[in-house]
């Protein structure tokens, strides 16, 4: 694939004095960022409401015929009701319990496989690296959502397969980032020292190198949760992901599409939920990036899907 070396723009501001420890600096920068703060607060609220959905939601999200169908937002139903008379607000709350884990788990799958392959490729080099990087090239040859679609086409659409598909499809980014950083870390003194002392390879990789390349990985993983949520809800929207009756935001959007003209609320609120979640994660990720690794800006900016 294209590996173009463009001198990356740096955004280190003059205020960052080199006297403090990196961690303290990072925390300070993060706290200074208003957007990061907003992002974390909104995200926290979303996560909390999903966690407490069983208490917060006024109605059963699955039971049909509890109320009049397709009533507009009112005091009884703050987000209106859907075609089965179900409370949209309750379904949006419960939907978070599907969508958020899908984002988290698929990113965990991708990060685990991607980071360890990247470590191995970067550290070992040689044939191992060649094989891994050719695999990465291959996966990158599938534009956007195509790889996930391909996997879903083989496995079929379901919650678990959705996480697998989205997870696998985003492995390459982790491999490339990890490998790149490992390549430069490998030559640094602490690694050379560890090697001279005869530490085991895996020990060096995971104990010494990984912590030092962690920061940009965390930034990327955070931002990738956002795009994973978009991809997963897109697949569910297409009918290839989560199946009813499980409430899921993308799926709810698809269900509302049919009567968008008469009942905008069925579509509007689940979509808003996706957007707010992704928005807050993006803000948080931006804040983290500015705090931890300003050089990542270009790379992160070029990634998104949906």
């Amino acid at each position: 694939m294209a590996r173009l070396a463009v001198s990356p723009p740096t955004n280190v501001t003059d205020r960052d004095r080199p006297r403090r420890t990196p961690t303290a600096l990072a925390i300070r920068r993060f706290r200074q960022s208003r957007s990061a703060l907003v992002g974390s607060v909104v995200l926290l609220l979303i996560v909390l409401s999903a966690l407490t959905a069983s208490r917060l939601s006024p109605y059963n999200p699955l039971k049909i015929g509890q109320g009049e169908a397709l009533t507009p937002p009112s005091r009884a139903h703050p987000m209106g009701t859907d075609r089965f008379g179900r409370d949209v607000f309750s379904r949006v709350l419960w939907g978070g319990r599907t969508t958020l884990p899908v984002g988290l788990i698929s990113v965990s799958i991708a990060a685990t496989i991607g980071v360890s392959s990247g470590l191995i490729a970067g550290y070992r080099g040689g044939r191992m690296e060649a094989v891994i990087m050719r695999m990465v090239d291959l996966m990158l040859a599938f534009p956007g959502i195509l790889l996930a679609l391909f996997i879903i086409a083989i496995l079929g659409g379901s919650l678990v397969n959705l996480m697998i598909a989205v997870g696998i499809a985003s492995i390459p980014d982790y491999v490339r980032l990890t490998r790149g950083m490992v390549l430069s870390a490998k030559e640094q003194e602490f690694v050379l020292a560890a090697r001279a002392l005869g530490y085991r390879e895996s020990n060096i990789m995971f104990r010494h190198i990984l912590p030092n390349v962690m920061a940009p990985l965390v930034v990327m993983a955070t931002l990738r949760i956002a795009s994973a949520i978009i991809t997963a809800s897109a697949l569910s929207f297409l009918g290839l992901g989560v199946q009813p009756p499980t409430p899921e935001w993308g799926k709810m959007l698809a269900e509302g599409q049919e009567f968008l003209i008469y009942a905008w609320w069925v579509t509007f609120f689940p979509g808003l939920a996706i957007m707010l979640t992704v928005f807050s994660i993006n803000l948080l990720g931006d804040g983290l990036r500015d705090a931890l690794d300003p050089r990542l800006r270009l790379r992160a900016a070029s990634k998104s899907s949906g």
Binding site: L62, I64, R83, F84, Q243, P244, P245, E255, E258
Partner: peptide, 27 residues
């Protein structure tokens, strides 16, 4: 049938699950 039959299927699914089925929808 994907999309076209989904609403009625969701309704029937809810009915069946009410009496103890585990109705799975295959669009």
């Amino acid at each position: 049938r994907a999309r076209r039959d989904e609403p009625r299927s969701e309704y029937i699914q809810a009915n069946l699950n009410d009496v103890g089925f585990d109705c799975r929808l295959l669009a």
